[in-house]
């Protein structure tokens, strides 16, 4: 049917015949219909002015196969109407998928959509992957392209986490390094909790780094951080995520966490009952301690100074200068 594919000159001069078929007769189950999102705007438009552009069908068989135009066909089918389509004739599932991608390229924005398309080709004929990536706007060997390919190594049901926003594509950098057992162990932490993109990447990175550093599997890392306790505890999702992140970080950075804890405790003691806040600003890289106070009048300035004088006499300041310990 097509000449000079994959996927060069193909359809440039095609003049496909127009067909008119009852919408209900069209088979819309082809796996090449990669991104069949319901589209209210299309429905409204069809209701208002009718079908303006033809769908694509392969009408070579007993029942026309839809190649592009799922939203239009669904709505027209509900209304019991006919559909105008271009009959592209008989061609392979991959050709149909490629036509589908080209026909929908204008609304391609989500990583999940790209991954879905790549997974289709990986399952049908992986030799076309590079060509497909180009069409999807993924420059071969670029970071997003590598991440998309890495994602394909994950079980297919993980695509729903990507599509649902539970995990961003960048996580593939880490997840591709884990075996099935590790992947299974970690699923619980984003099945029930919806993390911000930055935090889930951070938490997975810490888990991975502890896993490699300590030579233990991911399930063990999660157990050491009591992650399942946090997932199952009666906490708000926000508190559960904060607790998981803090515990995993403490495993990843035990000494830093200990110093921070000591500094926080010391600051609490030193500044108790005052308006001063104290922090170690450089992760203990310098000897600096930052003190801040909010004042709203000259009288408050005087009070703050008096508080500071009292604080200066305290013996606990040494906790801020761990490098100077004996």
């Amino acid at each position: 049917m097509f000449e000079n594919t994959w996927w060069g000159t193909m359809t440039r001069d095609q003049r496909w015949p127009v067909v008119r078929v009852p919408a209900q007769d069209i088979d819309c189950s082809g796996p090449w219909l990669l991104w069949p999102h319901k589209n209210d705007a299309v429905c409204r438009s069809l209701a208002h002015v009718g079908q303006l552009s033809p769908v694509l069908v392969d009408a070579s068989g007993p029942r026309p196969l839809l190649v592009d135009g799922a939203a239009r066909v669904a709505w027209l089918s509900e209304q019991g109407q006919d559909v105008y389509g271009l009959n592209i004739g008989s061609c392979s599932a991959q050709d149909k998928a490629m036509l589908y991608i080209h026909a929908n390229i204008h609304r391609l924005s989500l990583d999940a959509d790209k991954v879905r398309a790549l997974r289709f080709f990986a399952q049908h004929d992986a030799s076309h992957i590079d060509a497909v990536m180009q069409v999807l706007g993924l420059v071969p060997h670029s970071r997003p392209a590598k991440q998309a390919l890495a994602w394909l190594a994950l079980p297919a049901h993980w695509d729903t986490y990507l599509a649902g926003g539970a995990l961003p594509l960048v996580c593939a950098d880490i997840l591709r390094l884990w075996d099935a057992h590790d992947l299974q162990a970690v699923e619980a932490i984003f099945q029930t909790l919806s993390w911000s993109r930055g935090l889930i990447v951070q938490v997975l990175t810490w888990i991975h780094e502890v896993h490699v550093r300590d030579g233990c599997d991911v399930a063990q890392v999660l157990a050491r951080a009591d992650v399942m306790d946090s997932v199952q505890a009666n906490l708000s999702p926000k508190d559960a995520m904060a607790r998981i992140a803090a515990r995993v970080r403490a495993l990843r950075y035990p000494e830093l966490t200990r110093l921070e804890q000591r500094a926080t405790d010391t600051a609490r003691v030193l500044a108790a009952g005052t308006r001063w806040r104290m922090v170690q600003p450089d992760q203990f890289e310098s000897d600096s301690v930052e003190l801040a106070a909010r004042v709203r009048s000259p009288a408050e300035v005087q009070q703050a100074v008096a508080e500071l004088v009292r604080m200066a006499e305290h013996a606990d300041w040494a906790a801020f200068w761990p490098g100077k310990e004996a």
């Binding site: 950075y253 110093l259 761990p322 490098g323």
Partner: peptide, 27 residues
Amino acid sequence: FPQSSYIYGEFITGLDGKQRLLRPLRV
């Protein structure tokens, strides 16, 4: 060098923007 796990030590961002081992550990 995927076997080189020392990169997962306790590094923090130093005052020059480079990653450095936590100061007490360096000391």
